[in-house]
Design a protein around this nucleic acid. Sequence first.
DNA 1: GCCAACGTTGGC
DNA 2: GCCAACGTTGGC
Length: 839
Amino acid sequence: MDEETLESPLQGTETVEEDAGQNAEKNSCKGDTVEEDIGQMSEKKSSEIDETNEAAPESSDGVNAIGSPSSGPMKEKATEEKEEAKSSGGEPPVDWFEPLEDDDDDAESNDRNDPEEESLAGESERSESVGGSESTFKKIYQLHAPRRKRSHPDEGWVECPALGEGWKRKEVVRRSGSSIGQKDVYYLSPRGDRVRSRVELISVLEGQDLSNFEYKTGKFYHGETPLPRIRSRKRKVRERSSSESSWMERGEGADTPDSHHRLTPSLGSKNVNSNHSNAPLNSTVGSPNQGSHSEDPPAEDKIKLPGPSSSQPRPLPSINGEIGSEDSILICARCGISFTGTWYDKQRKRPCCPSCWAASKTKEHPMIRFRKWIPCGQCVGCHNTDNCGQCANCKHGLQSPESRRRICRKRKCICPIRKGPGSGGFMQQRPYSDVSETFDDSMSFQGEVTDSQHPSLKSSDTENFSVNVDVDDEDELSTDDDDDWHKKRKRRSCGECKACLCRKDCGTCDFCIDKPKFGGSNKKRQKCRLRQCQRQAMRHLLPFQMGQGDYGPDGPLPPGRPRPHYTYSRKLGLKKTKGSQMGYDLSDNEDDDSNLQPISWSSSPVRSSKSFFDTNVRNHQSSMQQLNNSEFGVQNGLSDSVPQISNHSNPHQEQQNRWDAERAQSAREATKQVVEEDEEELPMITQIFSLADNSVGTGTDAENHLMKLLDSLRSSVLPILWYAIMVEGPQLQLIQCSKQSSMTDTMVLIDPGFFYQVTVQKQPLLPTHPLYDCYPARLTSVTEVVNLLLGLEKYSVCQGMPPKEPLHYKDPIILERSSTCDFLVKKNVGICNNCRALH
DNA sequence: GCCAACGTTGGC
DNA sequence: GCCAACGTTGGC
């Protein structure tokens, strides 16, 4: 119990210390000292743990944490200690002061660092820890220190004897996000199982009665009355206004990210009508079981919060229950001014000065953001003084004046300055601030609506003004931290594609298998691959063979976002340069849509057989084995005699097409959508095509004709798992998506003249193939296409002949095909006559 | 550069 | 309270 009461106040300190420690230590190499320290740590073990922990609150040497039973954390810890010793003992190595690549790093990585920066904001101690200037510290920090505690996995663990020997417990205060300040309690079993919840604990402690165990505090209550759980009266944050929610929900409004005082969320929260001076709040800090619970006044009595509507912005009660006795100097996340007190913004994420808070408190609609707007005062919009009463803003304002108080569109400043030259967006050169000092309907404020509201505004906005006010682009200008926050967290999903909309896990992909509900160990902790956003998911998270592969620097990019690089090193600059050369931003500023631009396939280079083969082996494995073998065989002397399609899309592209189709198919299967809806799966492909500069030299008409056929095909029911897409050429490509199908490597390519060609494993059927005799030379209608596909389904791919002489058992078996192989043979045949003739 | 792992946060 | 899963790190 004592340990715990000590622990909580330590939290904040701990963070600072370890951050500083990290900073100092990161520059030290690991190497042999590590092993040595591992040994030392191993000797510590539990006997030292308690001692260490007791000293922890006072300790500033950063060695107050406990070694984890696992070797990994131990190793890290050992390194830390060693390095810590170095840093505390002397001056940092010279190269500490070598500059980062530049200050751009800050800017470049703003997005990346935001949450962390924020979470560290106010931890002024950190600069002291280094003894250098803050800026120096910051650079060092950025350069060397990971901001996460990954390198301190064993930090903060304290013995939890209640659960048995070897059990450890750790409280983690959320350092960012809308739930900042919230405490999560983790347990670590002697075996190293990390327990995140009571449920997990029960599963780990199978058979043990935990009914009297209070997870939060790590105590069993024997005969005592367990701490009554205060029923959450929490409502959605968004339903609250401004910092009221911060206080009411958390009861720790005075608790700041940098505060050393943490409140147990279940205590002291939801305290509204109380006298804050009744009891020191720190009586509840991390020690709900401290003293008699019955003596604790009702939670409601612990804090008295001034009503958020108070017109007098003044510091709110501090954490220890004395008004103003502990003035936290905070930096307003909105306007940047420092202020005293503990005001938080609406979403409880960031400090918010009273002014900004007051301004934002009327912001009731969660989807509407308000931004201070500085009108030009000269344009026609600015000269309009009367509301038109007709526009959507006026009408909506009449209906719900509180929720949508936006300026009449006729009164909007439409000054061209807003629109940067050729920018398509407005206000690129205009100063603005999202600081809302006051709120009214004056022209000084520009309402902003969410994306979903844009279309109506857009059409309306443009109707009477010569300057097209593109409301969509307002988002680009948003500096709303809340938005950034959410964007960052949400940027992996568009929320619109079918994968995003799909709620059902496939249960078979590796990510699903990893999930506890599927019996996995929860190590990967990723969303089902089939549910990864088709547009914005990281490539490596997409279904297999999607988003992977060895794409050349100028090659087409696979769907999905490039993997970000989070290396806090000077390599970043190089990477960025490379990234920009590749046409996408490798910085972490992924909110930038540059990564999401549709990619033209027209520039795709022909990939080497080698890399293609490798990639296929890696990505497609068994499913593509046949293809690979075929290629391999081709490389072994058969291809020369097989005519190539000169204008055929390159193998890479075909593969991409196939992947697209597979992805669509996967999503389709996962969502169990009916076939008729499948057309929606691949609009992206069409879009890609249409955005490519394919019409040059091919004739737009021809392309249009093909597109019409494509549309027709997509609105029709094709034979099962056949899919039509448009590819470079243009060519209409029909693919069999199912790997189970005998036609999985067969494609039908229709050119702008509607002449078609069938290819198998990228090899064209010889014109003499009997298949061609059964169907018209041109496929001008859906019916003709469907007939051909149905006809194809009666065929299978010629398997080729095994080599005459048995190869060494280690060698791959390469089936041989005749240069005149039919490729497609009737299903009951297996091997074509030409191949049979080889033997 | 890739990826397994996992700390952490959002949301139900 | 719990789980899903996002973002990041460190190892390879």
